[in-house]
Design a protein around this nucleic acid. Sequence first.
DNA 1: CGCTATCATGTTAGCGCTAACATAGTTTTA
DNA 2: TAAAACTATGTTAGCGCTAACATGATAGCG
Lengths: 343, 343
Amino acid sequence: MSDKRRSTRRRRGSEQPTLQQVADAAGVSAITVSRALNAPERVNAATRIKVLATVERLGYVPNLVAGSLASARSRFIAVIVPSLANAVFIEVIHGLQETFEREGYQILLGNTDYDIEREYQLIRTFLGWSCSALVTAGLRHSEACRSLLTHWDKPIMEVMELGDALDLNVGLDHHEAGRCMARHLLAQQYRSVVYVGACLDRDYRARMRFEGHREVLHAAGLEAPMIELDQLGSLDAGATGLERVLSRYPSTNAIHFANDDLATGALLRAQRLGMTIPGDIAIAGFNGLPLGQHVTPRLTTIRSPRENMGRLAAEEVLKRLDAKRVTRRRHDVGFELLVGDST
Amino acid sequence: MSDKRRSTRRRRGSEQPTLQQVADAAGVSAITVSRALNAPERVNAATRIKVLATVERLGYVPNLVAGSLASARSRFIAVIVPSLANAVFIEVIHGLQETFEREGYQILLGNTDYDIEREYQLIRTFLGWSCSALVTAGLRHSEACRSLLTHWDKPIMEVMELGDALDLNVGLDHHEAGRCMARHLLAQQYRSVVYVGACLDRDYRARMRFEGHREVLHAAGLEAPMIELDQLGSLDAGATGLERVLSRYPSTNAIHFANDDLATGALLRAQRLGMTIPGDIAIAGFNGLPLGQHVTPRLTTIRSPRENMGRLAAEEVLKRLDAKRVTRRRHDVGFELLVGDST
DNA sequence: CGCTATCATGTTAGCGCTAACATAGTTTTA
DNA sequence: TAAAACTATGTTAGCGCTAACATGATAGCG
């Protein structure tokens, strides 16, 4: 029970060298190696070169877990999206990833499948990873989630939509987008317009667009019928949507779809059925995905700056992380009506 | 310099309670709280309930970084793909994510943009996070990357293609897929067939398919011209591809595209140009994306079981992590020729 | 030439958690 | 009924790294 009581009872998964071993091999202290790697300017050039050579020689890979624990911060950014099936989120993620990776941050990606409870679970887990910031899609969260986040002191970025955000906000006004398309359809003299969406309780931004749409139609003294599909945005669902409109509202002359996937699915189905667009029926979408611009007739839609939204969101978060500089909290990335030949 | 020399000099970002605080509040030791959370069956039911109630009451969120350091393993799975722009990888990721998340693993997603050096960098970083396993797309890696990985003792899964893998392998035979489609085109009596791909040096699986294709055409005594685009799979690139074929090989009667995006882009462009498919020109793709099945004529393509591939890969990795059970190392998920109306 | 300022590096003490061993209480077994 | 086996919980010692402070060397200054 003397000094002999050494501590050999330790695991050690692989035989990865540690910082200390690099330090010993280089003839410096551990902290110098740490600094040579993480804050090179704080180390004399000659020492730095010697240390980095040793790092190379031993094949040292820093244990980021240990580093994060010691410094109480990781270079993780939690990113939470409601779906991976939708190209929109992929592009936003892409914009985020590019920008964050350039600064050495790693994205932790979570997918809620449009389930607000799942968001809470994911956020809990992510907080446990000492993320440097959180980027999440949307402004609606569960109560538990809100209270968790209000006690959190790192940047929180809510993207996609605009409104009363917890912290930072980059997005666009979905009500206004819905109004915009409805006005366009009315201006084109369509009077019998159906809105078709999918799972609007979960994809509530699509519902917001519907509300804008309905407002405009009501203001013009028109009905605003709506059909809700139970399969989230897909070409298949769009085809189903078209058929349902045709059987339920046969006199319809325009369909306003909640997104481009649905709209394109409907457009392709209509063509397969031998219908003329926009002669027999006009079709409009939302998102401005490339697909809609490749079909003939080109789809009338609303383009949202998706990758840009990701990039801007990342930049704003980075600004905050850098200097805690006070930045504008809300950024409206806007949208653009893209008039194709389908309306 | 007596006992007074207490350690108050510690940061502590947010006022998150620690395991110890939960333990104190619940009147047990820290390890009991740890067990109540991570191995509930090792704690008496009454104690467990008491502890979990305290956890709830204090809003305790486990510090996963500390846990990972102490246990030398994180519940991270590194996943590396060459692109997010391609729906194929999204679907594989989806399959992986679903399966891994169910078992409480978190995916660390890396995107190489088809750059093999970038893969090495990403893997280095990911190893630093003590990932439990690595899933990467493809069998080709840089030398540095190979040597890094051969010294790593956790499961490595290479997906998408089949062959001489480092460890586990789930994929399909791209040479054979190329051959399969070429045989189909020959069987349909097309004799002047061009292969169109994009960035085949980076997307080398597309090149493998081309090689299979060429093999079959040569065996039939035919030329196998190829056009390489410099923009990765997109509808736009496909349209360009079509135009380039028409101008360079005007007598072509079938185009074998490296993937469905290209093929569909070409098909839609052909239609816009007023061409008949397959009358004027036949078009074939690869992947079996839904899009290709919604256009008219339906695209002839090869369906790969994408989500399945992700799911199977994840399951095999999990088996390994669970029990180190010896599993089959190589799984051929196969593919299926989907004869549409475009050939 | 003593004083402070700056630079380069080192020492110490944890970050919050869990593995491994230790201990006490309870049940089983021969 | 004592030893063995199991159950429930605790104690101890780090995991590998970095923050904060400490130290020593050199430079700058009037």
